[in-house]
Every structure is written in C-alpha cells, then in structure tokens.
C-alpha cells in the first residue's frame, strides 16, 4: 500500500471524525461551528466544509436541523474507521521497543500485541543508531506515568533527587514542564519549573525518585515560559553558510546546518547574493557547550559571525584541538 492514498484523503478522514463526534455527542448533537473547527484540523475551510456536511446529510449519513443549526447522528450509525493495515503494523512495531515498558502497563501492551500483523522488517530497514545507548531511566512505569500526568494537568510534584555535589538524596518540589528526549542516543531529561525561585532547571530523569503528585503546586504557563526565556542567551547567534563549489554542495551544507541545529529557536534565514545563506537563532545558555560541539561537527563551511563570546569560546576549542592534531 502507499501512504498517499485516497482512503487517507482528508475528506474521508474528516467525514469519519464527524460521524464519530456526532455519536459521542448523542442527542445533544453538535453545532455547525464545532464541526467547522474539526474540519480546520485537516485544513478544510468553508465552503468546502459546508459542502462536505451537506453531501453527508443528503446521503442520509447525518441529520441537519436548520432550527437549532446543529447536526445529529442518524439511526444507522457507522462505527469509526478501524485502524488501517499501516497503523496496525506500526503499532506492533512500537510495542517491541524498550520504551513501551515505560509508557504502558504490561497487561495493556500484551493485549495490544498480535502476531497476525507483521511489523516493519528489520531485514529491510537498517537503523544506524548511536553505539552506547543507555537504557530507560530508572523510574518505574507508574512513576513515569505520574510525571506525564503532572505535565498534562499542569500540577506540581515532590520528589527526591541526587545532586552532583552530594551523594545524599534531597527533597524537591517543582512543576514538571516537559520531558526532553534525545532520539539519537536515548537520553532523558526533565525540565522543571521551581515556582519559589522563579526559574527552570533541567535534570537527568534518572536522578529523580519517589515522585508524588502535589496538586496544590501550580503556576500559569506564561510564568513558566517567561522563566524559560530568561535562560536564553541575550544575543542571537548569526551563522553564515558559505557558498559551496556547486549549488548542490551549498544546499547540502545548509540542510546539514538546519538538521543539526534543528531544535534552536530560529529567527530568520536568508539566501545571500553570493549563493550562501545567513541564519539567525537563539540558544539556551546552559546548552552552550553542546552548541559549540555542534558547530565543530558542522565544519568550517558554517561560520559564526556573532555573538563575540561564542566566537571566542569556539576559537579556544579550535586552538586546543590544533594542539592535538598538529603535524609532528
């Protein structure tokens, strides 16, 4: 099968959503605006949305009530579309991953598993991962789910943690904001907001234990985002992608630059008259060492124009490296 398939067309998928939503709404029905909002998730705007709803009503698949300007479920209800073959196969594939043990209780994973559906064959796809992947963080599945629950609800947690300076575990109370995961080498961090200090901290997830929900600790999202912004370096990084010998080489260098720096907060990108490009982005100060390594990874075709502090730090590293690589 192909993924760009007519049965994945937004028309069919939206129609299936509408029928499911009308079933969920029961006798209350759903106002026109709610369905229009649903349609926007597929990029379907009026008049296409209105045309589609009329089509379904004309085919007696749903009922339109002019007086209440709402849609209702027909008696001959069609259950939602089941999982397609590609979705089933994908589900079986992810149930084999070690991370499934973190997210899913064993009984649920077992119920979802089936040998009838083939997962993607490792004989066909070779994934060249980083060599030294650590395992899952040392949290139990219920503890991990508590963290996700706290992030979803926006409430705080209390926990015990080990600081670098001391082996003795300490008590902590904070609001978990996001879990950060490095897809390349399977590392986990947690970004916590400490309301008493008004700042965000990033910690190894493995350093946390004895996690408990604390519903009384809350903070508005705006306050957390403001604390995050405070951690940004004051000046944006300005990079120049040097034009290569051929347009293809320049494009490769640009692509690599964007992929390596993908998570940075990009502000602008511009192609230059000489065929190169200028890129501006913001970075978090506590990630400067990693950024410097990424710049070395990218090579001298990506030049740091600003800020001065980053240029100086990079020059120090380059000088240190030249000592190691100098000719004898």
């Amino acid at each position: 099968m192909t993924l760009f398939h007519k049965y994945y067309s937004r028309k069919l998928q939206f129609a299936a959503d509408v029928l499911a939503a009308l079933h969920g709404a029961g006798k209350k029905g759903l106002p026109e605006k709610t369905l229009q909002k649903l349609a926007l998730r597929y990029g379907i705007q009026n008049p296409l949305c209105a045309d589609l709803l009329k089509l379904l009503a004309d085919a007696d698949l749903l009922i339109w009530d002019q007086r209440s300007r709402a849609y209702y479920e027909e008696d001959n209800y069609i259950p939602p579309l089941p999982l397609s073959a590609a979705e089933k196969s994908y589900l079986q594939q992810i149930l084999r991953l070690p991370q499934a043990e973190l997210f899913l209780p064993p009984a649920l994973a077992e119920r979802l598993r089936t040998s009838a559906v083939p997962a993607w064959d490792e004989e066909i796809i070779q994934s060249l991962d980083a060599a030294g992947q650590p395992g899952n963080p040392k949290l139990t599945q219920p503890e991990f789910c508590l963290l996700l629950e706290a992030i979803t609800r926006g409430c705080g947690i209390s926990y015990r943690y080990c600081a670098r300076s001391s082996k003795e575990a300490r008590e902590g109370r904070a609001i978990p904001w996001r879990l950060e995961y490095s897809a390349y080498d399977n590392r986990w961090w947690i970004i916590l907001y400490v309301p008493e200090e008004g700042r965000c901290v990033k910690a190894w997830l493995s350093n946390l234990s004895e996690i408990r929900l604390e519903f009384q600790i809350t903070a508005p999202e705006k306050e957390i985002l403001a604390a995050r912004r405070k951690a940004l370096a004051p000046e944006p990084v300005v990079l120049r992608v040097k034009p290569g010998e051929t347009p293809q080489r320049t494009q490769n260098a640009m692509e690599r630059c964007f992929l390596v720096l993908e998570r940075q907060e990009f502000e602008s990108t511009q192609l230059n008259p000489d065929g190169g490009a200028t890129v501006r982005f913001r970075y978090y100060r506590y990630e400067e060492n990693e950024l410097l390594r990424q710049l070395l990874y990218l090579g001298p075709n990506i030049q740091v124009l600003a800020p001065h502090s980053l240029r100086t730090a990079l020059l120090d590293l380059v000088n240190q490296a030249l000592e190691q690589f100098k000719e004898l």
């Binding site: 499911a20 939503a21 259950p79 579309l81 979705e87 996001r178």
Partner: peptide, 25 residues
C-alpha cells in the same frame, strides 16, 4: 484514529505538549 476514538466517546484528546525532542528531524 485515537483522536477519533476520543470523539466517539464524547471526550477530547489531551493536547498539552509533553515532550521536547533532540535529534529528531
């Protein structure tokens, strides 16, 4: 499909962002 199952039950898929990813192009 999961979102559609939420719709069928008359509830909403929780949308709050949970993760940030590194090396995930």
């Amino acid at each position: 499909s999961i979102e559609r199952e939420y719709l069928r039950r008359g509830t909403e898929l929780p949308r709050r962002q949970l993760f940030q990813f590194l090396h995930s192009p």
